[in-house]
Design a protein around this nucleic acid. Structure first.
Lengths: 286, 286
DNA sequence: CAGATCCTCTGACTAAAGTCAGAGAATGAT
DNA sequence: ATCATTCTCTGACTTTAGTCAGAGGATCTG
């Protein structure tokens, strides 16, 4: 059923909205060149390498497209001062104008698409598309294991601490830099190169028990089921590693987290550590 | 606001779902050939002309693609018996197999896209996409004036009569073929080559009054605001033609229609004709 | 500081997409 | 019957897209 809806929507989309991509046409530039210009404008000072990954282009192909935009006077490239093998690409003033033109075309397209709808219908459409957007993004998030000193893991951890600090009544003190945790496994969920959820497991109490640590979901991603998905993923990892029980602690102010643990089959237990910030303790047989 | 949501979704879509089109890749055939094969399979016996319009291809380009599919033994072309300038294209058994393969790939893609979501999330996504689908389709419907003896108008009229016949307690009798109606204007809303809504105006009573006639919306399109849009369109036409008042009659069983007229500012009036099927009468100052 | 690796670039292609003119058969209008 | 029109096709292109090998400079590793 859902598959049919997705496919039907896909068809509608490519036939009707897909024409939005045509906003990149009619500029006298090939599509790939416009896409590149758009990407450079979005991420001012991106290196050629980043653009290549982002647009999934062959290095020769991209290089030629850059020469073309350069010849048109829209972008300028210069060596990256941090690593002179890399080259950074920037828009020239003329390039900025061309970029703004693309933006305007894209906006006009979107506006003319919804113009025939009443205000009420536009609201319904916006709501439906926002929901679809969130869920599609959530569905295409990739979970991957990271070392706890991986730069991405550090970013996620910092955000986790920041949130605790903001939400706990007395603030939160990390107590200095991370000590290495033998046997711990951390997982990050990435979307568009940004961490959107994070969590890990580590041995605790006895060798059959894993502790779920540092569960965090990006603000913009609440309600998309990412937390539950991360939790399932961590539980599966724990089973793979031979654990038979998961425990976790959390602060009483994190009510959505507590509700999510309860929905996921966790039961409250007695305090099992001396974490001063923890107020609620849970376990689940795996 | 809505514009931003549309654009954001557009980006998500092209980056994530858009890869659905890749189901046409990896078949050893160029994309255009796969699309053509898909189209031929969807509309068995389509003429080259129809395919050209549908896929928006240059006639030379299409012709070469057809030769290619023919050489692979996937399609066969033969002159159209009705007009031997035209040629109709059909799938061969091998072509049917290749088509089914494309279908399967497309389904698999859609299934794997939603696989990471929970059942509840899949439901939400299906609902959101179905809503978006309906509204996007509604937004891209084109209204155009037609003569009442235009084939499309006949189809729409017939569906209108069929529905009356099915819904009125005693059935509905057209009372023979249409008499010509001097001064009448009919409008049809088309989507994918099919009429999805219909309606017209004609002079009645005095030369300041237009009567709204034969308002009909396709079953699948109820709730998309098409009826209201058609009504607004007809009112605007009436104003252009110098009318200052619109009236209409309808049967009491057509409750959604009555609700729609009331929402659109129509007030109940006394019977103004002797239409035996009419039970409710409305007017609106334009 | 030597060798491996990374990054971007050019050369030399092939494949796919798209364009335009016009030929030849079939059909419609008068 | 004639002429204009319609439909599909082929020929003869150009432009985009995409691939692969390797050159040459910059940086990292031991």
């Amino acid at each position: 059923m859902i598959v049919d809806v997705v496919r039907r929507f896909n068809l509608t989309y490519t036939q009707r909205i897909g024409v939005l991509d045509d906003s990149f046409l009619g500029t006298g530039r090939p599509l790939a060149a416009s896409r590149l210009l758009f990407e450079v404008g979005n991420d001012e000072g991106a290196s050629v390498r980043v653009l290549r990954d982002r647009l999934d282009l062959d290095s020769g192909h991209l290089s030629r497209l850059l020469r073309r935009l350069e010849a048109e006077g829209l972008v300028a490239t210069a060596p990256d001062e941090d690593d002179r093998r890399r080259r950074v690409v920037r828009l020239t003033p003329a390039g900025r104008t061309a970029y703004d033109d693309l933006e305007r075309r894209s906006e006009d397209r979107a506006a003319s698409l919804v113009a025939p709808l009443t205000a009420r219908q536009q609201e319904r459409l916006a709501e439906a598309l926002a929901t679809a957007d969130l869920l599609v993004r959530a569905a295409t998030v990739r979970l991957r294991e990271v070392a706890s000193d991986d730069p991405v893991a550090r970013v996620a951890t910092q955000r986790y601490f920041d949130e605790l600090d903001a939400r706990l009544p007395g603030g939160f003190d990390t107590g200095g830099p991370d000590a290495p945790e033998p046997g711990a496994t951390y997982v990050v969920a990435m979307s568009d190169g940004e961490p959107v959820a994070y969590g890990g497991i580590r041995p605790v109490l006895d060798d059959e028990t894993a502790e779920i640590k540092r569960m965090w979901v990006h603000d913009d991603w609440r309600g998309a089921g990412l937390g539950a998905r991360m939790l399932r993923h961590l539980e599966a990892l724990a089973v793979d590693q031979g654990y038979r029980r998961a425990v976790l602690d959390t602060n009483g102010t994190l009510v959505e987290a507590i509700a999510m643990y309860e929905r996921s089959g966790y039961r409250r237990i007695e305090r099992y550590n001396d974490n001063p910030y923890a107020e609620a303790f849970f376990e689940k047989e795996l």
